[in-house]
Amino acid sequence: MIKKIDLQNSNLAEELLALQKASYLVEAKLINFFEIPPLLENIDELRECEESFLGYFEGGELSGAISFTIDGDKLTICRLVVHPDHFRKGIAQRLLTEVEDSNRGLTVYKVSTGKENPPAKLLYLKNGYKLINDIEVVPGLYISNFEKRKVEE
C-alpha cells in the first residue's frame, strides 16, 4: 500500500531515515562515494527538507519511499529508496508510477542519480525518461540527469 508519509510522526520519520540510509549505502557502494547527502542526514534535516513523501508499506513495514517537489508545471523527484531486503519486488516502479499518476497535470518530470547506478538508470529509461546529461558534481563523481516531458494530446 502506498500512502503519504507525515514527517511529524516521529516513528515514521525514524523509519524513513533508517530506510534511506540502508538504500543509499547500496548506491554509495555502486558509485564509490559515501557522502551522498541523504546518507548523512539526521532526523531534523529530514523533517526540514520541504519535500513531499510517499511510502510503500508491506505488512505494515515501510519498505520503500519516494519524495518530490513541484515548481509550476515541473515535478522533481528528490529521492527514491527501497530497503535492500525488498529489492527486485517492483516497489520503486510502483512508487514512480504513483507520483506520475497523482500529478498528471504537470508537463515535466526530472530526476537525477549516480552515473554508476545502472538499476536506477534503467528504471528511469524504461519509464520514458531521457538522459539529459552527466555532470561531475565533485571530482570523480558524476550524476546523470533525466527528464520526461508529457506531450499535449
Rank of each mutant, 00 (worst) to 15 (best):
E98V: 08
T107C: 11
L123G: 03
V151I: 05
D85E: 13
S63M: 09
N32Q: 14
V82F: 06
G72W: 00
L125A: 09
R104M: 11
L141W: 00
L7W: 13
D73F: 12
S23N: 10
E14Q: 14
K89A: 03
L17I: 06
G64R: 07
S10A: 12
I2V: 07
L125R: 13
K115Y: 05
K148G: 05
S144H: 02
F87S: 02
F53C: 10
E48I: 01
G90K: 00
L40T: 15
V82D: 01
F57W: 08
G55V: 10
K74T: 15
S23Y: 13
Y56P: 00
K126V: 05
E14M: 08
N117C: 04
Q20F: 08
V111I: 15
N133P: 01
K130C: 07
P139M: 00
K110E: 13
K89W: 01
I70D: 04
E100W: 14
S112C: 07
G59L: 01
E116T: 00
I143G: 01
I77F: 09
E98N: 05
S112R: 04
L125G: 04
R88L: 04
P119T: 02
P38A: 11
E147L: 03
L123F: 05
S63A: 15
T113R: 00
N103A: 08
L123V: 12
C78S: 14
K130P: 03
E50V: 10
I91W: 03
K29H: 12
L19C: 14
S63Y: 04
L131S: 09
L7N: 11
F146H: 02
L30Y: 06
L12S: 13
E136W: 02
V81P: 12
N9I: 13
N42Y: 06
N145C: 03
Y56V: 08
F57H: 05
V99T: 12
V151S: 09
L106A: 10
T113S: 03
L54V: 03
K74P: 04
V151P: 04
E48S: 14
N9R: 15
Q93C: 02
H83S: 10
D6F: 12
T107D: 14
G55M: 07
T107P: 12
I31M: 03
F68R: 10
E27T: 00
N145F: 06
N11D: 12
E147K: 07
R79F: 08
G140L: 04
E153D: 07
L80E: 07
K150D: 04
E41N: 13
V26C: 00
E51F: 13
A13V: 11
D73S: 11
T97F: 10
E98R: 11
K150R: 13
N42T: 05
V26G: 00
F146V: 00
E41M: 13
T97K: 09
I66C: 09
D71W: 07
C78H: 15
R104F: 11
Q93E: 06
F53R: 10
I66Q: 08
A92W: 00
I2P: 00
Y56E: 05
Y24R: 01
K110S: 08
A18N: 08
K121Q: 15
V111H: 07
P119Q: 01
T97M: 06
E58F: 02
K148V: 03
N32E: 15
T97Q: 10
Q93I: 02
L17D: 01
V81F: 13
D6Y: 15
D44K: 10
G64Y: 06
K4E: 14
K115Q: 12
E27Q: 07
E153G: 01
L40P: 10
Y129E: 02
P38Q: 10
E51W: 12
